[in-house]
Design a protein around this nucleic acid. Structure first.
Lengths: 242, 242
DNA sequence: CGAAGTGTTGAGTCCGGTCAACTCTAGTGG
DNA sequence: CCACTAGAGTTGACCGGACTCAACACTTCG
Protein backbone atom coordinates (compact mmCIF):
# COMPACT_ATOMS: atom_id res chain seq x y z
CA UNK A 1 0.00 0.00 0.00
CA UNK A 2 2.70 2.42 0.90
CA UNK A 3 4.66 1.15 -2.01
CA UNK A 4 1.80 1.73 -4.41
CA UNK A 5 1.26 5.21 -3.13
CA UNK A 6 4.94 5.97 -3.58
CA UNK A 7 4.89 4.83 -7.14
CA UNK A 8 1.79 6.06 -8.81
CA UNK A 9 0.28 8.96 -6.95
CA UNK A 10 3.56 10.55 -6.20
CA UNK A 11 6.86 8.94 -5.84
CA UNK A 12 8.16 12.34 -6.65
CA UNK A 13 11.07 13.55 -4.52
CA UNK A 14 10.42 16.39 -2.09
CA UNK A 15 13.11 18.38 -3.79
CA UNK A 16 11.27 18.19 -7.09
CA UNK A 17 7.61 18.23 -6.15
CA UNK A 18 7.47 21.98 -5.79
CA UNK A 19 9.93 22.60 -8.61
CA UNK A 20 8.50 25.03 -11.11
CA UNK A 21 10.58 23.88 -14.02
CA UNK A 22 10.20 20.15 -13.47
CA UNK A 23 7.94 19.55 -16.42
CA UNK A 24 9.47 21.99 -18.82
CA UNK A 25 13.12 21.24 -18.03
CA UNK A 26 15.17 18.18 -18.87
CA UNK A 27 13.92 16.37 -15.76
CA UNK A 28 10.55 16.10 -17.46
CA UNK A 29 11.97 13.22 -19.48
CA UNK A 30 12.68 11.08 -16.42
CA UNK A 31 10.46 8.43 -14.91
CA UNK A 32 9.81 8.55 -11.14
CA UNK A 33 12.61 6.12 -10.27
CA UNK A 34 15.15 8.08 -12.22
CA UNK A 35 13.87 11.32 -10.80
CA UNK A 36 14.41 9.95 -7.32
CA UNK A 37 17.94 8.85 -8.17
CA UNK A 38 18.80 12.19 -9.68
CA UNK A 39 17.20 14.15 -6.86
CA UNK A 40 19.31 12.24 -4.36
CA UNK A 41 22.43 13.63 -5.98
CA UNK A 42 21.02 17.11 -6.61
CA UNK A 43 21.03 20.25 -4.58
CA UNK A 44 19.36 23.59 -5.05
CA UNK A 45 21.39 26.68 -4.39
CA UNK A 46 21.55 30.37 -5.07
CA UNK A 47 24.29 32.34 -6.77
CA UNK A 48 24.82 36.05 -6.29
CA UNK A 49 24.94 38.48 -9.17
CA UNK A 50 28.33 38.56 -10.81
CA UNK A 51 29.48 35.19 -9.52
CA UNK A 52 31.02 32.78 -11.95
CA UNK A 53 29.38 29.41 -12.56
CA UNK A 54 31.68 27.86 -15.09
CA UNK A 55 35.05 29.21 -16.08
CA UNK A 56 36.53 29.06 -19.54
CA UNK A 57 38.73 25.97 -19.98
CA UNK A 58 37.61 24.72 -16.60
CA UNK A 59 36.58 21.15 -15.83
CA UNK A 60 32.85 20.65 -15.95
CA UNK A 61 31.71 18.23 -13.29
CA UNK A 62 28.16 19.43 -12.70
CA UNK A 63 25.16 20.18 -14.82
CA UNK A 64 22.47 22.58 -13.65
CA UNK A 65 18.94 23.66 -14.35
CA UNK A 66 18.21 27.34 -14.14
CA UNK A 67 15.23 27.75 -11.80
CA UNK A 68 15.18 31.54 -11.65
CA UNK A 69 17.29 34.49 -12.71
CA UNK A 70 19.45 35.00 -15.77
CA UNK A 71 22.80 33.43 -16.62
CA UNK A 72 25.03 35.02 -19.24
CA UNK A 73 27.38 32.96 -21.38
CA UNK A 74 30.44 34.91 -22.43
CA UNK A 75 33.55 34.55 -24.52
CA UNK A 76 36.59 36.77 -24.20
CA UNK A 77 39.41 37.57 -26.60
CA UNK A 78 42.97 37.63 -25.30
CA UNK A 79 43.01 41.42 -25.21
CA UNK A 80 39.88 41.56 -23.07
CA UNK A 81 37.18 42.24 -25.63
CA UNK A 82 34.13 40.34 -24.51
CA UNK A 83 31.00 39.01 -26.18
CA UNK A 84 27.93 37.53 -24.56
CA UNK A 85 27.00 34.54 -26.71
CA UNK A 86 23.83 33.51 -24.95
CA UNK A 87 21.45 34.17 -22.10
CA UNK A 88 19.86 31.35 -20.13
CA UNK A 89 16.52 31.71 -18.41
CA UNK A 90 14.45 29.20 -16.47
CA UNK A 91 14.04 26.32 -17.25
CA UNK A 92 17.18 26.13 -19.39
CA UNK A 93 19.74 23.42 -18.95
CA UNK A 94 23.29 24.52 -18.24
CA UNK A 95 26.21 22.34 -19.23
CA UNK A 96 28.03 20.85 -22.15
CA UNK A 97 27.64 17.09 -22.64
CA UNK A 98 30.46 15.13 -24.33
CA UNK A 99 33.15 17.53 -23.21
CA UNK A 100 35.49 17.58 -20.31
CA UNK A 101 35.97 21.30 -20.24
CA UNK A 102 34.02 24.36 -21.16
CA UNK A 103 34.90 26.73 -23.95
CA UNK A 104 32.74 29.45 -22.52
CA UNK A 105 32.23 31.30 -19.32
CA UNK A 106 28.92 31.23 -17.43
CA UNK A 107 28.18 33.98 -14.97
CA UNK A 108 25.14 35.03 -12.97
CA UNK A 109 23.75 38.20 -14.56
CA UNK A 110 21.21 38.52 -11.77
CA UNK A 111 20.79 36.53 -8.63
CA UNK A 112 20.32 33.01 -9.93
CA UNK A 113 18.68 29.97 -8.44
CA UNK A 114 19.98 26.62 -9.65
CA UNK A 115 19.42 22.91 -9.26
CA UNK A 116 22.76 21.16 -9.80
CA UNK A 117 23.68 17.51 -10.10
CA UNK A 118 26.85 15.58 -10.93
CA UNK A 119 27.71 15.26 -14.60
CA UNK A 120 28.46 11.57 -14.14
CA UNK A 121 24.98 10.76 -12.81
CA UNK A 122 23.31 12.57 -15.64
CA UNK A 123 25.57 11.03 -18.28
CA UNK A 124 24.71 7.57 -16.99
CA UNK A 125 21.00 8.30 -17.14
CA UNK A 126 21.32 9.56 -20.68
CA UNK A 127 22.34 6.08 -21.75
CA UNK A 128 19.47 4.28 -20.07
CA UNK A 129 16.83 6.87 -20.91
CA UNK A 130 16.82 8.01 -24.53
CA UNK A 131 14.11 10.54 -23.74
CA UNK A 132 16.70 12.52 -21.86
CA UNK A 133 18.99 12.76 -24.84
CA UNK A 134 15.97 13.76 -26.86
CA UNK A 135 15.27 16.67 -24.54
CA UNK A 136 18.87 17.78 -24.67
CA UNK A 137 18.81 17.63 -28.44
CA UNK A 138 15.69 19.76 -28.52
CA UNK A 139 17.23 22.34 -26.23
CA UNK A 140 20.50 22.34 -28.18
CA UNK A 141 18.61 22.94 -31.42
CA UNK A 142 16.66 25.80 -29.89
CA UNK A 143 19.85 27.37 -28.61
CA UNK A 144 21.34 26.92 -32.06
CA UNK A 145 18.36 28.69 -33.63
CA UNK A 146 18.70 31.49 -31.09
CA UNK A 147 22.44 31.82 -31.70
CA UNK A 148 21.91 32.04 -35.44
CA UNK A 149 19.16 34.61 -35.04
CA UNK A 150 21.52 36.67 -32.96
CA UNK A 151 24.28 36.36 -35.56
CA UNK A 152 22.05 38.32 -37.91
CA UNK A 153 21.61 40.98 -35.25
CA UNK A 154 25.35 41.17 -34.63
CA UNK A 155 26.39 41.12 -38.25
CA UNK A 156 23.77 43.11 -40.04
CA UNK A 157 21.77 45.38 -37.77
CA UNK A 158 22.43 49.00 -36.81
CA UNK A 159 22.96 50.07 -33.22
CA UNK A 160 19.36 51.28 -32.97
CA UNK A 161 18.03 47.98 -34.30
CA UNK A 162 20.28 46.01 -32.00
CA UNK A 163 18.99 47.76 -28.88
CA UNK A 164 15.38 47.35 -29.97
CA UNK A 165 16.00 43.66 -30.69
CA UNK A 166 17.51 43.25 -27.26
CA UNK A 167 14.51 44.79 -25.50
CA UNK A 168 12.19 42.52 -27.45
CA UNK A 169 14.27 39.49 -26.52
CA UNK A 170 14.07 40.34 -22.84
CA UNK A 171 10.36 41.12 -22.98
CA UNK A 172 9.76 37.78 -24.68
CA UNK A 173 11.69 35.81 -22.08
CA UNK A 174 10.53 37.63 -19.00
CA UNK A 175 6.92 37.32 -19.91
CA UNK A 176 6.62 34.34 -22.21
CA UNK A 177 2.87 33.84 -22.14
CA UNK A 178 1.89 37.38 -23.03
CA UNK A 179 2.28 37.94 -26.72
CA UNK A 180 1.49 40.12 -29.68
CA UNK A 181 -1.18 42.44 -28.26
CA UNK A 182 -0.40 46.13 -28.35
CA UNK A 183 -0.55 46.51 -24.55
CA UNK A 184 2.42 47.84 -22.68
CA UNK A 185 4.89 45.53 -20.98
CA UNK A 186 7.12 46.40 -18.03
CA UNK A 187 10.17 44.56 -16.75
CA UNK A 188 13.51 45.01 -15.05
CA UNK A 189 16.51 44.67 -17.27
CA UNK A 190 18.52 41.68 -16.07
CA UNK A 191 21.71 43.18 -17.51
CA UNK A 192 23.81 46.26 -16.85
CA UNK A 193 24.62 48.64 -19.69
CA UNK A 194 28.03 47.00 -19.93
CA UNK A 195 26.43 43.58 -20.31
CA UNK A 196 24.00 44.85 -22.90
CA UNK A 197 26.91 46.32 -24.83
CA UNK A 198 28.74 42.98 -24.68
CA UNK A 199 25.64 41.19 -25.89
CA UNK A 200 25.10 43.57 -28.80
CA UNK A 201 28.70 44.13 -29.87
CA UNK A 202 28.50 47.83 -28.99
CA UNK A 203 29.94 50.19 -26.39
CA UNK A 204 28.07 51.25 -23.28
CA UNK A 205 27.90 54.82 -24.58
CA UNK A 206 26.15 53.74 -27.76
CA UNK A 207 23.70 51.56 -25.83
CA UNK A 208 22.94 54.47 -23.53
CA UNK A 209 22.38 56.85 -26.43
CA UNK A 210 20.04 54.46 -28.21
CA UNK A 211 18.01 53.91 -25.06
CA UNK A 212 17.79 57.65 -24.60
CA UNK A 213 16.54 57.98 -28.15
CA UNK A 214 13.86 55.32 -27.68
CA UNK A 215 12.76 57.13 -24.55
CA UNK A 216 12.74 60.52 -26.29
CA UNK A 217 10.58 59.02 -29.04
CA UNK A 218 8.14 57.67 -26.44
CA UNK A 219 8.66 54.06 -27.41
CA UNK A 220 9.80 53.15 -23.90
CA UNK A 221 9.93 54.65 -20.43
CA UNK A 222 12.86 54.11 -18.08
CA UNK A 223 12.84 54.37 -14.31
CA UNK A 224 15.84 53.87 -12.03
CA UNK A 225 17.99 52.92 -15.02
CA UNK A 226 16.80 49.34 -14.92
CA UNK A 227 13.02 49.33 -15.01
CA UNK A 228 11.73 49.56 -18.56
CA UNK A 229 8.17 50.00 -19.73
CA UNK A 230 7.52 49.32 -23.38
CA UNK A 231 4.69 51.66 -24.25
CA UNK A 232 4.06 50.20 -27.63
CA UNK A 233 5.42 46.82 -28.58
CA UNK A 234 4.62 47.25 -32.25
CA UNK A 235 6.55 50.50 -32.49
CA UNK A 236 9.48 48.71 -30.86
CA UNK A 237 9.15 45.82 -33.30
CA UNK A 238 9.22 48.28 -36.15
CA UNK A 239 12.61 49.46 -34.96
CA UNK A 240 14.16 46.04 -34.58
CA UNK A 241 14.90 45.45 -38.25
CA UNK A 242 13.95 41.83 -39.12
CA UNK B 1 26.02 -19.21 -44.65
CA UNK B 2 24.82 -16.51 -46.94
CA UNK B 3 23.02 -14.94 -44.05
CA UNK B 4 26.14 -14.87 -41.95
CA UNK B 5 28.11 -13.29 -44.75
CA UNK B 6 25.46 -10.64 -45.20
CA UNK B 7 25.57 -9.72 -41.58
CA UNK B 8 29.12 -9.63 -40.48
CA UNK B 9 31.41 -9.24 -43.44
CA UNK B 10 29.30 -6.78 -45.30
CA UNK B 11 25.62 -6.45 -45.45
CA UNK B 12 26.43 -2.91 -46.37
CA UNK B 13 24.39 -1.38 -49.17
CA UNK B 14 26.13 -0.67 -52.47
CA UNK B 15 25.16 2.95 -52.14
CA UNK B 16 27.02 3.23 -48.84
CA UNK B 17 29.98 0.91 -49.24
CA UNK B 18 32.06 3.45 -51.09
CA UNK B 19 30.68 6.40 -49.15
CA UNK B 20 33.48 8.50 -47.76
CA UNK B 21 31.48 9.99 -44.93
CA UNK B 22 29.77 6.79 -43.81
CA UNK B 23 31.73 6.42 -40.61
CA UNK B 24 32.03 10.05 -39.68
CA UNK B 25 28.46 11.08 -40.54
CA UNK B 26 25.24 10.28 -38.77
CA UNK B 27 24.94 6.96 -40.66
CA UNK B 28 27.82 5.69 -38.56
CA UNK B 29 25.36 5.19 -35.71
CA UNK B 30 23.23 2.71 -37.66
CA UNK B 31 23.51 -1.06 -37.62
CA UNK B 32 23.63 -2.92 -40.97
CA UNK B 33 19.89 -3.60 -41.08
CA UNK B 34 19.05 0.01 -40.49
CA UNK B 35 21.65 1.13 -42.97
CA UNK B 36 20.03 -1.09 -45.58
CA UNK B 37 16.61 0.33 -44.82
CA UNK B 38 17.83 3.88 -44.99
CA UNK B 39 19.86 3.30 -48.13
CA UNK B 40 16.76 1.94 -49.85
CA UNK B 41 15.08 5.30 -49.38
CA UNK B 42 18.19 7.39 -50.10
CA UNK B 43 19.60 8.84 -53.23
CA UNK B 44 22.84 10.61 -54.00
CA UNK B 45 22.66 13.68 -56.15
CA UNK B 46 24.57 16.77 -57.10
CA UNK B 47 23.52 20.38 -56.76
CA UNK B 48 24.97 23.19 -58.82
CA UNK B 49 26.52 26.27 -57.27
CA UNK B 50 23.89 28.82 -56.29
CA UNK B 51 21.00 26.38 -56.17
CA UNK B 52 18.75 26.44 -53.17
CA UNK B 53 18.42 23.35 -51.00
CA UNK B 54 16.00 24.50 -48.37
CA UNK B 55 14.00 27.69 -48.47
CA UNK B 56 13.13 29.81 -45.49
CA UNK B 57 9.71 28.88 -44.09
CA UNK B 58 9.55 25.95 -46.47
CA UNK B 59 8.44 22.46 -45.53
CA UNK B 60 11.34 20.17 -44.74
CA UNK B 61 10.68 16.67 -45.96
CA UNK B 62 14.21 15.44 -46.53
CA UNK B 63 17.39 15.32 -44.55
CA UNK B 64 20.77 15.16 -46.25
CA UNK B 65 24.38 14.38 -45.62
CA UNK B 66 26.92 16.62 -47.26
CA UNK B 67 29.34 14.36 -49.16
CA UNK B 68 31.38 17.07 -50.86
CA UNK B 69 31.28 20.80 -51.43
CA UNK B 70 30.13 23.59 -49.19
CA UNK B 71 26.60 24.57 -48.19
CA UNK B 72 25.89 28.03 -46.82
CA UNK B 73 23.11 28.65 -44.31
CA UNK B 74 21.70 32.15 -44.60
CA UNK B 75 19.17 34.40 -42.97
CA UNK B 76 17.72 37.50 -44.59
CA UNK B 77 16.07 40.59 -43.13
CA UNK B 78 12.97 41.96 -44.78
CA UNK B 79 14.91 44.75 -46.49
CA UNK B 80 17.34 42.29 -48.06
CA UNK B 81 20.29 42.46 -45.70
CA UNK B 82 21.72 38.98 -45.48
CA UNK B 83 23.86 37.06 -43.03
CA UNK B 84 25.46 33.67 -43.47
CA UNK B 85 24.93 31.88 -40.15
CA UNK B 86 26.83 28.71 -40.89
CA UNK B 87 28.82 26.73 -43.43
CA UNK B 88 28.42 22.98 -43.80
CA UNK B 89 31.20 20.77 -45.07
CA UNK B 90 31.35 16.98 -45.48
CA UNK B 91 30.26 14.99 -43.50
CA UNK B 92 27.81 17.41 -41.90
CA UNK B 93 24.17 16.57 -41.49
CA UNK B 94 21.69 18.96 -43.06
CA UNK B 95 18.21 19.31 -41.64
CA UNK B 96 16.26 20.41 -38.61
CA UNK B 97 14.67 17.64 -36.54
CA UNK B 98 11.50 18.39 -34.56
CA UNK B 99 10.34 21.10 -36.93
CA UNK B 100 8.06 21.13 -39.86
CA UNK B 101 9.61 24.10 -41.55
CA UNK B 102 12.99 25.70 -41.74
CA UNK B 103 13.83 29.10 -40.36
CA UNK B 104 16.91 29.37 -42.51
CA UNK B 105 17.89 29.12 -46.09
CA UNK B 106 20.38 26.52 -47.32
CA UNK B 107 22.15 27.11 -50.60
CA UNK B 108 25.01 25.45 -52.44
CA UNK B 109 28.04 27.72 -52.18
CA UNK B 110 30.00 25.44 -54.48
CA UNK B 111 28.90 22.40 -56.42
CA UNK B 112 27.61 20.12 -53.69
CA UNK B 113 27.19 16.37 -53.54
CA UNK B 114 24.48 15.11 -51.22
CA UNK B 115 22.94 11.92 -49.93
CA UNK B 116 19.29 12.63 -49.16
CA UNK B 117 16.61 10.57 -47.48
CA UNK B 118 13.03 11.16 -46.33
CA UNK B 119 12.61 12.94 -43.01
CA UNK B 120 9.97 10.41 -41.95
CA UNK B 121 12.29 7.42 -42.36
CA UNK B 122 15.02 9.08 -40.37
CA UNK B 123 12.64 10.25 -37.65
CA UNK B 124 11.37 6.71 -37.22
CA UNK B 125 14.89 5.35 -36.93
CA UNK B 126 15.73 7.95 -34.33
CA UNK B 127 13.18 6.38 -32.04
CA UNK B 128 14.40 2.83 -32.40
CA UNK B 129 18.11 3.68 -32.39
CA UNK B 130 19.20 6.05 -29.61
CA UNK B 131 22.69 6.16 -31.04
CA UNK B 132 21.33 8.17 -33.91
CA UNK B 133 19.93 10.83 -31.63
CA UNK B 134 23.24 10.83 -29.83
CA UNK B 135 25.06 11.63 -33.07
CA UNK B 136 22.65 14.40 -33.89
CA UNK B 137 23.10 15.85 -30.43
CA UNK B 138 26.86 15.80 -30.86
CA UNK B 139 26.64 17.56 -34.20
CA UNK B 140 24.15 20.10 -32.86
CA UNK B 141 26.46 20.92 -29.97
CA UNK B 142 29.43 21.34 -32.29
CA UNK B 143 27.40 23.64 -34.52
CA UNK B 144 26.36 25.57 -31.42
CA UNK B 145 29.99 25.95 -30.38
CA UNK B 146 30.86 27.14 -33.88
CA UNK B 147 27.98 29.59 -33.96
CA UNK B 148 29.02 31.07 -30.63
CA UNK B 149 32.62 31.34 -31.71
CA UNK B 150 31.46 33.21 -34.76
CA UNK B 151 29.32 35.53 -32.66
CA UNK B 152 32.53 36.81 -31.08
CA UNK B 153 33.95 37.41 -34.54
CA UNK B 154 30.83 39.26 -35.66
CA UNK B 155 30.39 41.31 -32.53
CA UNK B 156 33.88 42.15 -31.43
CA UNK B 157 36.47 41.82 -34.17
CA UNK B 158 37.69 44.42 -36.64
CA UNK B 159 37.35 43.96 -40.40
CA UNK B 160 40.97 42.87 -40.67
CA UNK B 161 40.52 40.28 -37.91
CA UNK B 162 37.31 39.03 -39.43
CA UNK B 163 38.91 38.33 -42.79
CA UNK B 164 41.89 36.60 -41.17
CA UNK B 165 39.50 34.51 -39.04
CA UNK B 166 37.59 33.54 -42.15
CA UNK B 167 40.68 32.37 -43.98
CA UNK B 168 41.70 30.30 -40.97
CA UNK B 169 38.23 28.76 -40.78
CA UNK B 170 38.37 27.72 -44.41
CA UNK B 171 41.91 26.40 -44.15
CA UNK B 172 40.88 24.32 -41.14
CA UNK B 173 37.87 22.80 -42.88
CA UNK B 174 39.38 22.22 -46.27
CA UNK B 175 42.39 20.48 -44.90
CA UNK B 176 41.36 19.14 -41.51
CA UNK B 177 44.26 16.77 -40.89
CA UNK B 178 47.07 19.23 -41.48
CA UNK B 179 47.53 21.41 -38.45
CA UNK B 180 49.71 23.85 -36.62
CA UNK B 181 53.00 23.56 -38.48
CA UNK B 182 54.30 26.73 -40.09
CA UNK B 183 54.17 25.31 -43.63
CA UNK B 184 52.09 27.06 -46.26
CA UNK B 185 48.59 25.93 -47.11
CA UNK B 186 46.80 26.46 -50.41
CA UNK B 187 43.09 26.18 -51.17
CA UNK B 188 40.29 27.54 -53.30
CA UNK B 189 37.88 29.82 -51.55
CA UNK B 190 34.45 28.17 -51.60
CA UNK B 191 32.75 31.56 -51.39
CA UNK B 192 32.50 34.65 -53.54
CA UNK B 193 33.44 38.04 -52.11
CA UNK B 194 29.74 38.75 -51.64
CA UNK B 195 29.34 35.53 -49.64
CA UNK B 196 32.39 36.29 -47.55
CA UNK B 197 30.97 39.72 -46.80
CA UNK B 198 27.65 38.16 -45.78
CA UNK B 199 29.48 35.72 -43.55
CA UNK B 200 31.57 38.41 -41.87
CA UNK B 201 28.97 41.15 -41.59
CA UNK B 202 30.95 43.42 -43.91
CA UNK B 203 30.64 44.83 -47.43
CA UNK B 204 32.36 43.29 -50.43
CA UNK B 205 34.57 46.36 -50.76
CA UNK B 206 35.88 46.01 -47.23
CA UNK B 207 36.55 42.32 -47.73
CA UNK B 208 38.42 43.06 -50.93
CA UNK B 209 40.52 45.75 -49.29
CA UNK B 210 41.46 43.54 -46.36
CA UNK B 211 42.48 40.71 -48.69
CA UNK B 212 44.57 43.17 -50.65
CA UNK B 213 46.25 44.26 -47.47
CA UNK B 214 47.05 40.70 -46.39
CA UNK B 215 48.51 40.12 -49.83
CA UNK B 216 50.54 43.34 -49.72
CA UNK B 217 51.93 42.27 -46.35
CA UNK B 218 52.94 38.89 -47.78
CA UNK B 219 50.71 36.91 -45.44
CA UNK B 220 48.83 35.34 -48.35
CA UNK B 221 49.05 35.05 -52.12
CA UNK B 222 46.01 35.17 -54.37
CA UNK B 223 45.68 33.75 -57.86
CA UNK B 224 42.60 34.00 -60.07
CA UNK B 225 40.68 35.71 -57.26
CA UNK B 226 39.78 32.40 -55.70
CA UNK B 227 42.96 30.45 -55.12
CA UNK B 228 44.63 31.45 -51.87
CA UNK B 229 48.02 30.39 -50.54
CA UNK B 230 48.66 31.11 -46.90
CA UNK B 231 52.38 31.72 -46.76
CA UNK B 232 52.59 31.75 -43.03
CA UNK B 233 49.78 30.39 -40.90
CA UNK B 234 51.16 31.85 -37.70
CA UNK B 235 51.27 35.35 -39.11
CA UNK B 236 47.68 34.88 -40.19
CA UNK B 237 46.74 33.62 -36.72
CA UNK B 238 48.35 36.68 -35.23
CA UNK B 239 45.97 38.82 -37.25
CA UNK B 240 42.81 36.95 -36.32
CA UNK B 241 42.35 38.44 -32.88
CA UNK B 242 41.40 35.64 -30.45
C1' DC C 1 32.17 42.63 -80.22
C1' DG C 2 29.08 43.89 -76.22
C1' DA C 3 27.05 42.35 -71.94
C1' DA C 4 27.01 40.48 -67.53
C1' DG C 5 29.25 38.94 -63.51
C1' DT C 6 32.97 39.29 -60.28
C1' DG C 7 36.43 41.75 -58.11
C1' DT C 8 39.48 46.00 -57.11
C1' DT C 9 40.39 50.70 -56.07
C1' DG C 10 39.51 55.59 -54.89
C1' DA C 11 37.01 59.63 -52.74
C1' DG C 12 33.94 61.17 -49.50
C1' DT C 13 30.58 60.39 -45.73
C1' DC C 14 28.71 58.83 -41.51
C1' DC C 15 27.83 55.68 -37.76
C1' DG C 16 29.63 54.11 -33.83
C1' DG C 17 33.96 54.29 -31.03
C1' DT C 18 37.04 57.05 -27.96
C1' DC C 19 37.92 60.19 -24.49
C1' DA C 20 36.34 63.07 -21.03
C1' DA C 21 33.20 65.52 -17.99
C1' DC C 22 29.31 65.11 -15.41
C1' DT C 23 25.10 63.17 -12.62
C1' DC C 24 23.05 60.08 -9.53
C1' DT C 25 22.80 56.64 -6.23
C1' DA C 26 24.47 53.61 -2.67
C1' DG C 27 27.62 52.52 0.64
C1' DT C 28 31.30 53.65 4.16
C1' DG C 29 33.16 55.65 7.97
C1' DG C 30 34.51 59.62 10.84
C1' DC D 1 24.86 63.80 10.08
C1' DC D 2 27.77 64.85 6.35
C1' DA D 3 31.97 64.04 3.59
C1' DC D 4 33.96 60.97 0.74
C1' DT D 5 34.31 57.33 -2.52
C1' DA D 6 33.06 53.99 -5.97
C1' DG D 7 30.15 52.27 -9.47
C1' DA D 8 26.65 52.84 -12.95
C1' DG D 9 24.82 55.61 -16.32
C1' DT D 10 24.42 59.84 -19.39
C1' DT D 11 25.95 63.33 -22.45
C1' DG D 12 29.08 65.98 -25.45
C1' DA D 13 33.03 66.69 -28.71
C1' DC D 14 35.90 64.56 -31.72
C1' DC D 15 37.80 60.90 -34.53
C1' DG D 16 38.38 56.99 -37.43
C1' DG D 17 37.04 52.61 -39.49
C1' DA D 18 33.76 50.76 -42.33
C1' DC D 19 30.13 52.04 -45.60
C1' DT D 20 28.54 54.37 -49.89
C1' DC D 21 28.97 55.62 -54.38
C1' DA D 22 31.46 55.45 -58.44
C1' DA D 23 34.86 54.18 -61.86
C1' DC D 24 37.52 50.68 -63.63
C1' DA D 25 39.77 45.83 -64.67
C1' DC D 26 39.24 41.16 -65.86
C1' DT D 27 36.84 36.94 -67.31
C1' DT D 28 33.25 34.42 -69.46
C1' DC D 29 29.62 33.87 -72.56
C1' DG D 30 26.56 34.70 -76.32
Amino acid sequence: MELRKDIHTNGIPVLCVSCEVRHRGVCGALDPDQLIALAKASHKHTIKEGEELIGDAEQIDVYSNVLAGVVKLTKTLSDGRQQIVGLQFAPDFLGRPFRKESSINAEAATEVSLCSFPKATMDRMMQEQPGLENRLLQQALIELDDARDWMVTLGRKTAAEKVASFLLLIARNIDPEREANGRSIAFDLPLTRADIADFLGLTIETVSRQLTRLRADNVIRIENNRHVTVENIDRLRGRAGN
